[in-house]
Nucleic acid binder design. Structure first.
Lengths: 680, 680
DNA sequence: GTGTCGGCCCCGAGCCGACAA
DNA sequence: TTGTCGGCTCGGGGCCGACAC
């Protein structure tokens, strides 16, 4: 029996023509940032797609070849037959319906003889029942995948809420500097001898991520990931491949609990006291007709080992306890008070069990294999060699040991470095993991922008931002961060049209400018021409632009209504009477909010507007009309730039973490959205 | 109070002139190979020294700077004042008597205002009472040193009888190839990706060994050593520095025992059954008036941890047992039946305790720090970088994991590569450690000589000898060995004079020929011109040489006395009647024995001579006279070559291991010898 | 001389509810 | 609701000599 392609609601997937699937793809991207739909970008985007159809089509095919995963659910795309020929690793049994497979996608023939690509992620395969794969041939494979997903879920739970892994097949930026920092932290030794120079090794290396496997240390259960990277040569970098996958953190499982162990939990005197809500939410219900109610729980750890516990509800007052089996687990995992355990009840009705050792002064075992100096040299030499030969190399990423992620999605990098303007004095916020393994934001101010190591790694974006933290208790936080780790509270959107902020240089095809470090991208960075007009940001000053005029800075707190604002802007820009009634005059006001979204002025309640406005743009009737038309006069470079910007814009954090509350009501997470209907 | 220089018997050390100390040094070297004194080399050596005094003087000063250790006892040498300036790390308190110090030597001012250098080794500091250091300032330092010696003794006991560490300050040869093999064994992963080429990295690197520290794995107690090496540049290699230290294995402690644990020893059911002889030899005697006799033993492991055991003598029949405390030790060290423990009772009345895990299938923990490929690249890149910059680098040597030692004394290397002739078909023996941690010899035959890895490591001496083993049970032994690991049963001495075997090329100053691999030293290697005359070695064929004539091969077993031999040699070489009475004719016969010593024919009983003779040389009266004279017509190159040969010749194993039984009666081990009196 | 085992003791791992924060 | 503790129990850690190889 052939697998039935997942339908999009009640709709058959678009077929024929081979290009018809574009709607799906772009829509998927759009789905991550619904708010940006607010100002007609939808139509301009389709104008763009119409103009650059061939280009983007090739990009999307490349994307498939790279086996990129999606964030949510299964998606099905019909492909042209010739797409198959792009795949080098076609299985021998092409006679079968299953043509190509990997752990994240399937290429198969549908009942209508169309070719379908099924793509999934670990997240997805937990959410979807197995009946989606109706062929019995897939049983064992599905089981393997299940196992993998199980581990993936547990791995991410142990790694913490902030940790993300780039998707297999995607493009990433690798920072040898950050890798070196991890090795220093892991070996507890800074570089203490002369290290050779590797002139061919730039501070950041654009790579294709060929493989990611999740592991856990046999001794300590500490999670780490192994990644196989392949640096792209300059030609490959010039290719206008699609950049996607911002590497958003996995959603934490819902049916789980995490408890920090008490002295009683870890003593030999007794068992483990399970918080009542946790036990009721995560463990299978007890048979309360028994006296006392008790059952045996079997949980699997990251290595697949089974642990059996007696779960009993007893005592006066009654409480949930794990007794028999618990102390064996405690001693085997060498748990002490302060460490944490987490239980997950997954969709397959399996109980998963992970541990997270407290950040106790780690007894770093000195490696007796290789000196730390040789390790540092090794990682640099391996990366340099791989870069010069475009060959693969393998690294380990240890999220609990590494100060920062040193392999990040290319899109995230581009977004942060080329589409975000930061400057000294700017306020920002940054996510940190709390003691309780949840997330909270800390606020800070940028105090400087400079190379962390100007001698060895000049022009590096790694930790190039010097920061001060608001809270005195945050004194132990790092004094330097990287651009992509922070959310500037006031940013200036860098995408070209519809804003007439001209690029000093056109955006080059692809990304050849990476190779030489950030200087090559200077046309896009590090101040606006009118920066000296701006007061140091009471935090209520807002820049206002008008085409053909210089900008002004405005204390938005001076105003109490949209009307006052419109009136004053009209006075400032010599447009008295034009801005009060857009319907009549044709002049429009739009603004960029703190999440880089472009919105029409006037929709929000005034106070919310004041809190969120980042900068304001005055659009002439001609500009407004231009935006409303399908055809925008975009150069190819600008079109690509726009496309990059769109797909690089992260979904708002709330949207992802808190479960899509800001999504439109009719759009469910995990369900296919209908394709957009192009204008005309 | 100033320290009193150690006197040499009743003799004051030679002072003044700065060169007067040469006698000491050379004598010390001679002490290691007393048998070579047999044929007047003593005098020829002094002739050589007379001619090359300045040269050797600089060599010896360099030796001090390099902090080389001695084999036996403390030695004291008076130095010129300006020697002090050679030291870069002079302490600030030069006003004090203590000028410079390290763990192996002291530079100080004596009561006569002379400057003295005290040098010692770990061996020595156990053998000499502390009263040698009369300054109370040294108490804590001496204690530290004691601790160090304690660990060193235990470390070597755990490492096994075959393991030796080159002396600090000595010159060594480092083999990246062998290092790579250790990393492969430790990570359990062969190189599986492309490794960059390092054209500047030769297969062997001559280094100065700056530091050696002994360690034990915190988790497994496995012993390993950390070494800091500095490659010598070509200029330094040209310098005729002194080569010493063959890296003889440490003498195993005498008061110790090693027992392989039984199932009963490791079960929780009981304690540890101590073999009776072992207990009586190693443990303090019990008070047998008690009933039952018992005591508490406190033993220290490699980390300095104390372990307490109840030692009791009970049962029927009576036996020695360790009870209380034993099971804690077993579980802490994760010992199982088949592992071994060893107890040492040292000279300071301390009980030392080490473990040696059986060679069970090791659960190699995958390192989560660096990929094994990067590790391999790292060790190569680190060595290449150090070689090109003459900077220091650090390596770990794990004697139980590494197939072979990959840092060996330079002298050992020279001896094996340039002073030993091997060829296919040659018989050899090689030492192996037995299950019981003792040593036994295995015999084999050389089946080939070639590069192990001709592509990456051409012209490497590492494992260049293909061998077959005699015993079928030795099938699992390595199929390749390095020259310095084997003892060829028939060797041809390669030192030049007094044998008129001309060098095809003069020996270059220093060792520049190393850099280019073995081919550059070909003038000295791998066949003699008459090799095709030699039958494949009943084992009684001996080569005979005479200046100006071709050699002959002789079945020595055909003869039954010296007289028969002399008569036949006279006939063969046209010297009828000349060889029977050397006193009258002036013609002399000398021979080289299996230990490469040059001896006069006729001293030994006939049968012993037959058993030991390797080759015979006929000396004309002129040659004999020449040797007897002080002035030998040696070129500088030949002189240095001779000097190298002498100091590179290993002491006979019996001499060292069994305590100097072959030394002259009046020369005590651990005492200073009087300087030799040069002729004239 | 020493490896293994049955006998036996007793300590502490571990289950229980009491109690209080 | 849950962390800690006293009480109690029982299994196995661990000491003993018997016995056999």
């Amino acid at each position: 029996m052939l697998p039935t392609p997942v339908d999009s609601g009640n709709q058959e997937p678009v077929r024929g023509g081979g290009r018809g699937n574009l709607g799906y793809m772009v829509f998927q991207l759009e789905a991550l940032r619904p708010r940006s739909l607010g100002l007609g970008l939808r139509s301009s985007m389709f104008g763009f797609l119409g103009a650059e159809l061939d280009l983007v089509s090739r990009v999307l095919e490349e994307r498939f070849r790279l086996r990129m995963g999606f964030q949510l659910g299964w998606f099905c795309v019909e492909l042209e037959h010739q797409v198959k020929e792009l795949h080098g690793d076609c299985h021998e049994d092409c006679s079968n319906w299953l043509w190509l497979k990997s752990s994240t996608w399937l290429l198969c023939k549908g009942k209508n003889s169309g070719i379908y690509l099924l793509v999934k992620t670990g997240e997805a395969c937990l959410q979807l029942p197995k009946m989606r794969l109706s062929s019995s041939n897939l049983t064992s494979e599905a089981h393997e995948e299940e196992q993998q997903c199980l581990n993936s879920e547990l791995w991410h739970a142990c790694a913490g809420p902030l940790v993300s892994l780039p998707a297999v097949g995607s493009r990433v930026v690798y920072f040898p500097q950050g890798h070196s920092e991890q090795v220093a932290a892991s070996t507890n030794k800074e570089i203490d001898s002369q290290i050779p120079n590797y002139p061919s090794l730039p501070p950041q290396l654009i790579c294709q991520l060929h493989n990611v496997t999740m592991h856990a240390d046999v001794e300590t259960d500490e999670v780490y990931a192994q990644m196989t990277l392949q640096p792209l040569n300059s030609q490959e970098q010039k290719d206008p491949y699609l950049l996607t996958e911002l590497g958003t953190p996995r959603k934490q499982p819902t049916n789980y609990f995490c408890k920090t162990l008490t002295a009683s939990d870890t003593s030999t005197h007794g068992g483990f006291s399970v918080p009542r809500r946790a036990a009721e939410k995560v463990f299978p219900p007890l048979d309360y007709s028994q006296q006392p109610p008790a059952q045996e729980l079997i949980a699997r750890d990251l290595h697949g080992n089974e642990w059996k516990f007696r779960h009993i509800f007893r005592g006066q007052p009654k409480r949930h306890l794990l007794t028999t089996g618990w102390s064996i687990f405690v001693s085997a995992k060498r748990l002490v008070a302060g460490d944490s355990v987490l239980f997950i009840w997954n969709e397959n009705n399996q109980l998963l069990l992970g541990i997270r050792h407290a950040n106790r002064p780690q007894t770093v075992m000195p490696s007796s294999v290789l000196s730390s100096d040789s390790m540092h040299i090794g990682l640099l030499a391996a990366a340099a060699h791989a870069a010069s030969t475009n060959s693969r190399f393998t690294i380990f990423y240890n999220p609990r040991a590494s100060p920062s992620e040193f392999v990040i999605p290319l899109a995230k990098y581009i977004k942060a470095v080329y589409h975000t303007r930061v400057s000294v004095g700017m306020r920002f916020r940054m996510l940190f993991e709390t003691e309780e393994s949840s997330v909270r934001r800390y606020m800070g101010t940028i105090t400087g922008i400079s190379d962390l190591d100007p001698v060895r790694w000049s022009n590096s974006h790694w930790c190039s931002v010097k920061v001060g933290w608001d809270e005195s208790t945050a004194g132990e936080k790092q004094p330097r961060v990287s651009l992509w780790e922070i959310e500037p509270l006031t940013t200036f959107p860098m995408y070209p049209s519809p804003f007439p902020l001209r690029l000093k240089r056109p955006w080059p095809i692809g990304l050849p400018f990476f190779q030489g470090g950030k200087d090559d991208g200077s046309g896009f960075l590090r101040y606006p021409e009118n920066v000296d007009q701006v007061n140091p940001q009471s935090g209520t000053f807002v820049k206002v632009y008008r085409s053909g005029s210089f900008g002004r800075s405005l204390d938005i707190s001076r105003f109490s209504s949209y009307h006052e604002l419109r009136s004053e802007l009209g006075r400032l820009f010599g447009l008295e009477g034009q801005l009060e009634d857009p319907q009549r005059s044709g002049w429009q006001l739009v603004f960029v909010d703190r999440e880089n979204d472009v919105l029409l002025v006037g929709d929000d309640p005034w106070q919310e507007f004041v809190n969120n406005v980042s900068c304001i743009k005055i659009l002439s009737p001609q500009e407004v009309q231009q935006m409303g038309q399908q055809e925008l006069d975009l150069s190819t470079e600008q079109a690509i730039s726009l496309f990059y910007f769109m797909i690089c814009s992260p979904p708002s954090a709330e949207c992802l973490v808190e479960g899509g509350g800001t999504l439109p009501q009719d759009l469910e997470v995990g369900r296919m959205w209908p394709p957009l209907i192009p204008a005309h």
